[in-house]
């Protein structure tokens, strides 16, 4: 056995074949191998959420998973959600509500918020869900709790929540 592996992923809809050191995190595979640097490295230890991406539609911290463990997976990064001239509704809502300042946590916030709306729709409970046996409903409290794995040191939280509420409304 060797210390490197080949892995094939579908990233933002495109098949990518990579030869990686087994140690390479999904985050570093995206940033350093595929040069998809929209996904950010804030802490590299699962403590900030800046590296959040969607894997098979589920949001995860790409810093705490190995690229080699994602053979065959579909990865969506911020670059795959929308482009400057073709923003995803969540990206547009972040711009409109100024849901960012330095911008470094922003791709993670946006990927996370897109997933949060899906998680609420799928009736997954959160720490602030009032009843475990009734349908989970979208609320600012639910958004704040579910977004808490995405730290924004600039402190744009109040605006981010407004952006997500708006995006949720547009989509519904």
């Amino acid at each position: 056995m060797t210390y490197a592996s080949t892995v094939s992923m579908k990233v933002n809809g495109e098949r990518r074949d990579l030869e990686v050191d087994n140690r390479t995190s999904l985050l570093d595979a995206l940033r350093e191998h595929l040069h998809l640097t929209g996904t950010k490295k804030g802490c590299d230890h699962g403590q900030c959420g800046a590296c959040t991406v969607l894997v098979n539609g589920v949001r995860i911290n790409s810093c705490l998973t190995l690229a080699v463990m994602h053979d065959g997976d579909e990865v969506t990064t911020i670059e795959g959600l929308g482009q400057p001239d073709n923003l995803h509704p969540m990206q547009a809502a972040f711009v409109k509500h100024d849901g960012f300042q330095c911008g470094y946590c922003t791709p993670g916030q946006i990927c996370s918020s897109v997933a949060v709306l899906e998680e609420i729709k799928a009736n997954l409970p959160s720490h602030v869900t009032v009843s475990l046996t009734e349908r989970t409903r979208i609320s600012e409290a639910e958004i704040r709790e579910r977004m808490s794995g995405n730290i924004c040191r600039c402190g744009a939280y109040s605006n981010i929540v407004e952006a997500i509420v708006e995006a949720a409304g547009t989509r519904a």
């Binding site: 929209g38 911020i78 670059e79 482009q83 711009v95 100024d98 791709p107 946006i110």
Partner: peptide, 8 residues
């Protein structure tokens, strides 16, 4: 804003 929200 468009650059920051799209990771560019």
């Amino acid at each position: 804003g468009e650059l920051k929200t799209t990771g560019r």
